[in-house]
């Protein structure tokens, strides 16, 4: 790890000194084991960059804060960050030539107590699929054979049981919108929940409204979700939000062929296109 960190600092210094990038987005040292994102503008500041097992946040979303940069942005990417950037490029939120991806193969991250994160346990791409520079050696992909196990369990329930399960889940939701704020697939200029005049989202705090929010958000990112699991990680009440996203991904795969968001920049998301031989159930 520390060797990688050294390499990363070296590379960052080089890029900044040569002027290839204007600044670099990476992880910095916070209190205890927190690794907040930092933005390095000066070559002498590169020692603030940190790379260790506590670097959990997905950095892709921070590119949206600077949509029209005055120079290239260097960004540290693991597998999930890289997929996030690819999604943002596909959504035309970020120009590919505006970013320089510093790939960091990742062996999984841990939380404050040292336990492996759920999102890293379920990770499918530890090596960044898309990058400009890669540091260190590629790590072995472990895959995720249990990816849809929980979804299949839930599918077996009766419809009333399913409804009750999800009502109980969304009953706890406090609608802080942290899941939306952190999600790299959520990049609408104005989110539907903020369009007060249109009134998609009621202001009441009750289960129905929470459900409308949860369902709509999940469906909005149906073919964009990169399965980084950030929504679950940041949820203050610990809702199993990936169970909704995985269901959509599972169905997309079974209906329209295998697809993984953000892995290949040339593959379009399935809901944005069609094929004549799609399954027909509406005759």
């Amino acid at each position: 790890m520390s060797q990688m960190q050294e390499e990363l600092r070296q590379k960052a210094k080089e890029l900044l000194e040569k002027g290839e990038v204007r600044y670099i987005i990476g992880w910095g040292k916070g209190r205890f084991h927190h690794r907040p994102p930092i933005f390095i503008y000066q070559a002498e500041d590169v020692d603030k960059l940190v790379w260790d097992e506590y670097c959990v946040a997905n950095l892709g979303k921070y590119l949206l804060d600077d949509k029209f940069p005055e120079g290239k942005i260097g960004i540290c990417v693991r597998g999930c960050d890289s997929r996030a950037v690819v999604r943002l490029v596909q959504d035309k939120q970020v120009k590919r030539e505006d970013v320089c991806l510093i790939g960091l193969p990742c062996t999984g991250k841990v939380d404050q107590e040292g336990r492996e994160l759920v999102k890293c346990r379920d990770c499918m791409h530890r090596n960044p699929p898309v990058y400009d520079i890669v540091l260190g050696e590629p790590v072995e992909e472990k895959g995720n054979p249990d990816r849809f196990k929980r979804v299949e369990e839930l599918e077996k329930l009766s419809s009333d049981e399913k409804y009750e399960y999800w009502s109980n889940v969304f009953d706890k939701c406090i609608r802080c919108y942290a899941c939306r704020n952190v999600c790299p697939a959520c990049n609408c200029r104005e989110c539907f929940v903020d369009q007060y005049r249109v009134g998609w989202q009621g202001k009441q705090k009750n289960c129905m409204q929470n459900q409308i929010f949860g369902l709509t958000r999940a469906y909005h990112i149906a073919d964009r979700c990169i399965e980084c699991g950030e929504c679950e990680r940041v949820c203050p009440v610990g809702l199993p939000l990936m169970e909704l996203n995985r269901k959509l991904i599972k169905d997309l795969n079974s209906l329209f062929g295998p697809y993984e968001a953000g892995v290949n920049p040339d593959v379009k998301p399935p809901l944005g296109e069609y094929r004549l031989e799609d399954p027909e159930e509406y005759m």
């Binding site: 979804v151 839930l154 599918e155 419809s159 009333d160 049981e161 399913k162 409804y163 009750e164 399960y165 999800w166 459900q211 369902l215 999940a218 469906y219 149906a222 909704l244 269901k247 959509l248 169905d251 997309l252 209906l255 329209f256 399935p270 809901l271 069609y274 094929r275 004549l276 799609d278 399954p279 027909e280 159930e281 509406y282």
Partner: peptide, 23 residues
């Protein structure tokens, strides 16, 4: 091509609603 998009969208939507307990 409008209805081809409809078809994809609602094939998925129907399954999603079912997953959430709506017949």
């Amino acid at each position: 091509s409008g209805n081809y998009f409809t078809r994809r969208r609602f094939l998925l939507m129907q399954r999603f609603l079912e997953y959430n307990g709506i017949d």
